[in-house]
Structure formats: C-alpha cells, structure tokens
C-alpha cells in the first residue's frame, strides 16, 4: 500500500521533525508522541486492509494477519519469525527491519534506534487495538537491522 521509498523518507522526516521541535527536557515525550502517531495510523490502516478479508477466527489468526499481510502491505516484506507463549505474549522478529536497514549493520547508532522504532510500535498497537486486542507493544534491537517487537496482551 505504501510505496517504499517515500514512506521511508516521510518517516525519517517525521522523526527528525518531532525531535527538532521539542526542547531538551521533552526528549521522552518525542518517543511517546511518535508512538501515539503510529497508533492512530494503525487504527485506520487496519480498517482498510481488513475490508475485504473474511472474519478472523481468533487471536492467533489476527497475529498471523499482522505478521504476513499487514507487514507486507506496510513494509513490503513479512515478519521472519513469530513466537508466542500462548499466554498473551507474542514476539515478532524482523531480521531486516525496513527503517533500520539504512542506519547500520551492527551496533553503531544503536542509541538512535528507539526513535525509529516508536512509530512502528504504535502502528502495531493501533492495528491490534482496533481488532479488539488491547496490548502494549515494545521493541528491542540488539544488532541492527534486526529487531524484535514484543506484544503483551491484556488478560481479561
């Protein structure tokens, strides 16, 4: 759905803009803002993407959709590995995350990684919340460009 290059550039500029227009004390709020942005976009995107799908059976179905179709539509590739403990925690592993591929190939610039992960985290969270799965999405990167998204689902 999103053309790769303009989307990447737009995202980079988004991150840069939010950080440049905030004062030094608000550093953490930049990440929170980006995540909220991603959340809102995720909400809308998932409506569009699931418009013509059949109904999802269960939670696992929805996660598979996120890993395959959703990821494909947004980042033009699929999630490489999905793990779960069946207790509401899912770990999505992307070995070549699109926003990080151009940053570095190892540990360099790792301190800048969180900025570029905030929006994708929000995207996943928005998508899942819209599907009815309340969750928290966190991310971790230890060797770029691979990164792991961890989804913790609220147990009712």
């Amino acid at each position: 759905m999103a053309d790769e290059v303009p989307f990447e550039f737009l995202h980079m500029e988004l991150v840069a803009h939010i950080h440049n227009t905030s004062t030094k004390e608000e550093n953490d709020t930049c990440i929170a803002k980006l995540e909220s942005l991603g959340y809102r976009v995720g909400l809308s995107l998932i409506e569009r993407f699931t418009k013509d799908c059949s109904r999802f059976k269960d939670e696992l179905d929805m996660m598979k959709f996120i890993c395959k179709d959703f990821w494909n539509l947004v980042y033009k590739k699929q999630i490489d590995n999905l793990r779960t403990n069946h207790q509401g925690v899912y770990v999505l592993q992307d070995n070549k995350f699109r926003f990080l591929t151009q940053l570095s190939n190892g540990k360099q610039y790792m301190e800048a990684a969180p900025k570029y992960l905030a929006f994708p985290c929000g995207l996943i969270r928005g998508a899942l919340c819209s599907l009815g799965i309340n969750c928290i999405v966190t991310a971790e990167v230890s060797a770029m460009p691979a990164c792991k998204f961890q989804i913790q689902i609220q147990r009712l």
């Binding site: 699931t50 109904r55 999802f56």
Partner: peptide, 30 residues
C-alpha cells in the same frame, strides 16, 4: 462452527412485521 462461511455480511438479523433488519460486522468489530 469452523465450517461457517466467515463472511463479514451477517444477513437478515430478524424481521419484524414492517421492517427487515440486516447486519454486517467488520473485522474491527464495527
């Protein structure tokens, strides 16, 4: 029922004497 057609369209929900009510639920439960 796994065999049910998992369509978003639900069909006729219930008829009253004067009206017929149809339903449709998206994947996001709207």
């Amino acid at each position: 029922n796994a065999n049910d057609l998992r369509e978003l369209y639900l069909g006729l929900l219930y008829p009253t004497e004067d009206y017929k009510v149809y339903g449709y639920v998206t994947n996001t439960k709207v």
